[in-house]
Amino acid sequence: MKKIIKYILIDILKNRIIIAYTALLFIVSLSLFMLEDNPSKAVLGLLNITLIIVPLISIIFCTIYLYNSSEFIELLVAQPIKRTKLLFGIYLGLIGSLLLATTVGLGIPVLLYDPGPTGMTLLMTAGALSIVFASLALLSAVITRDKAKGIGLALLLWFYFSFIYDGLVLLILFQFADYPMETAMIALSALNPIDLGRILLLLQLDISAMMGFTGALFRDFFGSNLGLLFASLVMVVWMVIPSFIAIRKFKNKDL
């Protein structure tokens, strides 16, 4: 499996899209830090990049990469190697390269300008979302045979988690405005990794007080160690479950 990761990394790190993505992250975050005199404001700007661009690039890039490699993957399947190992290796290779891109693109500016816990949370969130959306990409590439359909599904997933889901939450909130919804909200936030990442980051950015002003439970929960543990756990579940399903499906897939 290590060998697979190694060669996938060799390939992806020379990939123009990944290089452009890294450069984009780097330039945008550096210029944000340089334009804003207050680093925490810049982090707020980076928040949007982390929550929208990182998942989008992760899921689209991984899906396209997997489709473009389908013939090569077939060739590798015909070699004496377990399918699960093969796909897992490819997945890890993809994750590795995405993490490298975010570490270089976001990490270096953050470390230079705001190396505190806020910056670290930003990096962690960006990393976690990269992995989660690579995992979702793996799933959509494995369950759809057609390239166009697969990419469509990936885009749809991204759009769902970025926009549709929050719209639905808003709708639910209005529908059940008369009921206590705080616990339900915590559950709902766990069902969307982007929301989860955003909340964690905002709590770090001291917006916690504002959240508390309206819903103390929210802050008490996510602000505590237990909440942090819960959030990290849910994130890990988001990383593991889609890729696990994908790998299982791939095991018995007819290529």
Partner: peptide, 18 residues
């Protein structure tokens, strides 16, 4: 205004939908 009426909507703070 939404938050004022429905405090839990704070969950969507800085969401692109907002």
């Amino acid at each position: 205004m939404i938050v004022e009426r429905n405090a839990t909507a704070m969950m969507l703070f800085r969401s692109p939908v907002v």
